[in-house]
Design a protein around this nucleic acid. Sequence first.
DNA 1: GTCGGCTGTGAAGATCCTGTGACCATTTGC
DNA 2: GCAAATGGTCACAGGATCTTCACAGCCGAC
Lengths: 289, 289
Amino acid sequence: MTESITARDEAAPSGPGGASSALRIAVLDRDSGFIQVLSKRLDRLGWEHRVLASPVPADAVVSMRLSALVVDLAVLGPQAWEWLERLCGALPDLGIVVCTGPSTVAQRVRGLRLGADDWITKPCHPEEVIARVQSVVRRRRRPSGRTEAKPVMAGEVEIRSDRFQAFVGGESLDLTRREFELIELLAAAEGRVLEREEIYSRLWGYTMVRGDRSVDVFVRKLRQKLEKASPRWRYIHTHFGIGYRFAAESLDVDQDVEVPAALPPEWAAGDEGQLAGPQQDRELTTDAF
Amino acid sequence: MTESITARDEAAPSGPGGASSALRIAVLDRDSGFIQVLSKRLDRLGWEHRVLASPVPADAVVSMRLSALVVDLAVLGPQAWEWLERLCGALPDLGIVVCTGPSTVAQRVRGLRLGADDWITKPCHPEEVIARVQSVVRRRRRPSGRTEAKPVMAGEVEIRSDRFQAFVGGESLDLTRREFELIELLAAAEGRVLEREEIYSRLWGYTMVRGDRSVDVFVRKLRQKLEKASPRWRYIHTHFGIGYRFAAESLDVDQDVEVPAALPPEWAAGDEGQLAGPQQDRELTTDAF
DNA sequence: GTCGGCTGTGAAGATCCTGTGACCATTTGC
DNA sequence: GCAAATGGTCACAGGATCTTCACAGCCGAC
């Protein structure tokens, strides 16, 4: 199983409202020219990707946690159909784009029926491959809605984005929407200090006017609720002249360890604006019909 | 706006529980030969379909409650892109398959980026069009899952998708269609908070305009019926500024446990088998690679 | 230690959101 | 065609939330 890994580590979490457009995909192909060109484009998009030169068993694909797989059926040989069917069965959430040489209508129909999401005929432009992968992933993601996001723990507090709420010992803190957004944002920073301006622009969506105290007020409300529910811990720390930092800090003498919020990597898997956008379209001439 | 209607009444509900392999699609094209052949195939499959010969405004498409739309961009003229973008924005759940004459890579990429799910180049085999439409629809439907019979229990309420009805102690709540779709959707979320926009787009199929109160109104109707039939429980919880959450909550003091809807594990499972399947492949020669 | 600026705090509107009943349009059943 | 059922809109009222403001306390600089 030859494979070259271009990917960096986990995609950077871009915060609660943030939208990381980076996808994780794999290309199963042997056509070195095609791979090279495609890889270059993928790099530029910042997508994590790996190239596989030989068929991998379905459960190996599972562990790659891919958004989509681009595959040339020719690499798979006679077992192609069986492999495809098995994979689609095992990973119903994986986007599968077949990108292969000339084929008959019957073959394409068969592939699509077995579970492939798209079928592109080589030779093809890498840009089109990417656009089709995006289309497939976009469709797939939509109904799953909110981030699956496992709950985030910090000290005694559990932040559950599926409920828009934080809990201490199973008891809800009764946070309002803004309060929740704030704690979510702070916790996602994993112990970093966030400046007021940044907090403001992330929560309110526009830049803060000088003298606005909204952030402070919400920090206070949040502190009150946290204090009431979890008196033996401090969570939000003020950095004078800068902003705030979130870290669970026990007040018990024997253990004064600081624990930044533990975030699962899937955090902030939202998908706004994942398209590279107009500036890329301009590379190509787009004429009307 | 010439249009010939082959379809009959309401199609399979596009709501959460809608389970039927018959799709409702529209074809926007003027190529009579293509239309004729395609229509014949669609008839044989038992899919409801209508043929449109001229562009229809996006909101007219809304009322058709389609699963997918096959469109030849050439029919739309210079406004094609704009029309496509508008439609995709308004109906994020509609599958859109562009089927048009020769095009450049740039055009295809643009179309896919704007929201089209697939792009087929004419001339093409109707069987492939159908397979791609199926693929697009399958992709979207997946997470909604087939609700195979198993009733869902939450508190005293039993939700039976096979009957499109909810019961308390064997007594029907007399839910209307929308009301049932709503309770089913909420219950399927398993205790997660669903935002209004999401509820709306899942039930109505298109994006909610600001200020629309339909969701609230149906929540009220549902609450009334639930309250009447099961007064000692609360089911639908409001999350201010966000949406609603479904969880059975007893009002009896001794046990104030929250019980999210108990869903059978099959829920949200893949939905193979809805494809017409192998017997159709046999019409075509399927050779291996 | 003093001073200016920054932050914490409480409270008072202003604003936004939801619950509700009434009303109208459309569909369905007779 | 008529009546009932259903779906959807509207305006109003009450409540929840957000924003603003003034003041007090705290921090760091000099």
